[in-house]
Write a protein that binds this DNA or RNA. Structure first.
Lengths: 364, 364
DNA sequence: AGAAGCCTGTTAAACGTTTTACAGAAAAAC
DNA sequence: GTTTTTCTGTAAAACGTTTAACAGGCTTCT
């Protein structure tokens, strides 16, 4: 009852073959005769044999594990990403090692180091700054790496997958402008994060062009509660905007929390365009109009790129850019249509004029 | 520029010591003279040496990795758990290997097998059925295992950590009864899941005792959208209840979605007690009254148990039971206070009479 | 029929660590 | 002054697998 550990040698003995044959049966590295194969499988099954990944990896150098590094495991956006990646990886026989950098450069560095110590066959990361993490510098040509979501603005030495963030901001702004909003507040998480800067730029550029004046931009951070407090603080000492664009799912939460606490209704007097699309956004009386990121496609693109690299693709880095779309619901008031006040009783959501279908588009 | 891999041997050569000494420096297994130690560290740093975990693990049998298995990586409850566990594990120098069973027994089996192939030093799992997964049967005395959240009702052969689910259901029911509600609907995810059955039992027992009749129980599944559709379907062909208890965070979402789509207001005419406590629950005009699970404490208890086991604790399995509490907000109407209708303009949430502080309580 | 080529299976040598057994030097005990 | 003990470092043997090199038994080709 207390057999210490069953190895390939035990299986070989029981099946009456050499250990190499057993290895070949499991790794599929060399073909093996059908009935021998059956004998081996039977023996392995009876002994409840499992190949030891450490030994396997040590000898072969092949890890069948990929590291996944994200900035925050409490942010649904990132966990959705992890969830999708787990499914894709599992389909291809890979396990995933997840680590969170908690948006801290030092922690990112150390988490990367420990991930690399596993000698993974690949790495998918959402880095927490624009600079290439020091720990990855030496790995550039060696280890397949894909950056997702947060990609350096000036191109990267590794493969990247992200949405067109500038356009995402623009879509939000265009929607509000089309509905007659003139006093738009832009709520960002942090301008230190380049995709956020891009979203802000997209929104601000359009607003400036159309209205000839700069919208106000505020930073609410990456924590919903603290963000809500910050926004509350802002609301108390500034005139109420007619609409706010939240550029992140947690900023959306912060915005809604603060508005709720101030007992300010949506979409009248304040309209809101949120970011990302999660069940809670439609689980409310006035569903949230939001910019939808195609998370499944981001994950898929990242995985496909990583898989190609792991298979030996040596082409220069590619940068996939996916499209975000507008998910129109009821949180934006139509000021252009007419001056009627109060909650709209019109059950029809506004049609989506902007064309929201997400489709991949390879660049560079 | 293309050195293939730097091993302990290279470091030893450069530092002018034996490989055993280098190993001792890094593993801390045997003390080593201070200046030798410094030489080794310097050499290692210059070569950017990293110990190879596969080799290390193969020889020592020590993995410094723990497997984490959850039923659904898109459910915030589980990802919060993973997030907390990642922090705790990292603090103790462990990495985590995450896998999702997607609530499928077969997948759970296969995911467990691949986790076990890593020979992890421990395993934290939220199983998807009451039965001990077949893959774990052989590991019982060998591998430290902790089950969290979903624990078999009749005790378990492994350590478990969970909340008092019966009481959680009871608290929700008591709150509604105290507010004068008589027509209560219980929305569960799936009665196949034992903690859900317990919550249902807690709520139903109390309601039966107080009111002398059985409340209606419906199953909405573990997907928010499908659950919303199911509840909508139910609402269309049954009389409106005065209150609904949602026993899961996704059932809460389903419930709110369906009510929103029916344009039924909260808390009047329908009150809602939700489950779990997430930012989106307070990011609404009428904040959600909900049963709060102490996720951080669940994670901590699970990790502490696992750590003790990994350190060699051989005591019989323990079963920690934590307390859930009521987070009172504005989604429950007070029918007892008076017959006034319409949205309450009273900004004060009802005081929490039930005593919500969560505290660990060891059992068995 | 004999040589050449393919299968299919085996033997043995890695892979990079940890760890046991041991050796030499310094310190302590007699 | 010798012996014992303690301390530090080293040599070498694992750990369980993959894989290169090889060895037979076939088929296939001259």
């Amino acid at each position: 009852m207390d057999n210490p550990r069953v190895t390939i040698r035990d299986v070989a003995a029981r099946a009456g073959v050499s250990i190499a044959t057993v290895s070949n049966v499991f790794s599929g590295n060399k073909p093996v005769n059908a009935d021998l194969r059956a004998r081996v499988l039977k023996a392995a099954d009876e002994l409840a044999y499992q190949v030891d990944r450490a030994a396997s990896q040590l000898r072969s150098g092949q890890a069948r594990v990929v590291g996944v590094l994200v900035p925050d495991l409490d942010d649904v956006f990132f966990t959705s990403l992890v969830s999708q990646l787990e499914v894709l990886a599992q389909k291809d026989g890979y396990d995933i090692l997840v680590a969170s950098s908690r948006d801290d450069l030092g922690l990112e560095q150390s988490r990367l180091r420990t991930l690399l110590a596993w000698r993974p066959s690949g790495l998918i990361a959402v880095p927490c700054s624009d600079a290439l993490p020091e720990a990855l510098r030496h790995e550039i040509g060696r280890l397949p790496i894909v950056f997702a979501d947060r990609v350096p603005p000036e191109g990267s030495v590794v493969d990247t997958v992200a949405i067109d963030n500038r356009e995402a901001g623009e879509i939000a702004a265009r929607h509000l402008l089309a509905k007659g909003h003139r006093d738009i507040l832009v709520a960002a998480s942090s301008l230190a994060i380049s995709p956020i800067r891009e979203r802000v730029r997209g929104a601000c550029d359009l607003i400036r062009t159309m209205l000839g004046r700069e919208p106000t931009v505020i930073e609410l951070g990456s924590n919903a509660d603290r963000g809500a407090a910050a926004f509350l603080h802002w609301l108390e000492r500034h005139p109420q905007p007619s609409a706010v664009i939240a550029l992140t799912n947690v900023t959306t939460l912060s915005t809604l929390s603060a508005l709720a606490r101030m007992r300010i209704d949506i979409p009248d007097p304040v309209s809101v365009v949120g970011f990302d699309d999660y069940p809670w956004m439609s689980a409310r009386k006035t569903g949230l109009t939001a910019i939808r990121q195609p998370i499944a496609e981001i994950a898929e693109a990242a995985w496909n790129r990583l898989r190609a690299r792991m298979a030996g693709d040596q082409a220069p880095p590619t940068h996939s850019v996916l499209q975000a779309g507008l998910q129109a619901r009821d949180s934006v008031r139509d000021l252009a249509a007419g001056p009627e006040r109060g909650n709209s009783h019109d059950p029809d959501p506004h049609p989506n004029l902007e064309g929201a279908a997400a489709s991949p588009k390879a660049v560079h």
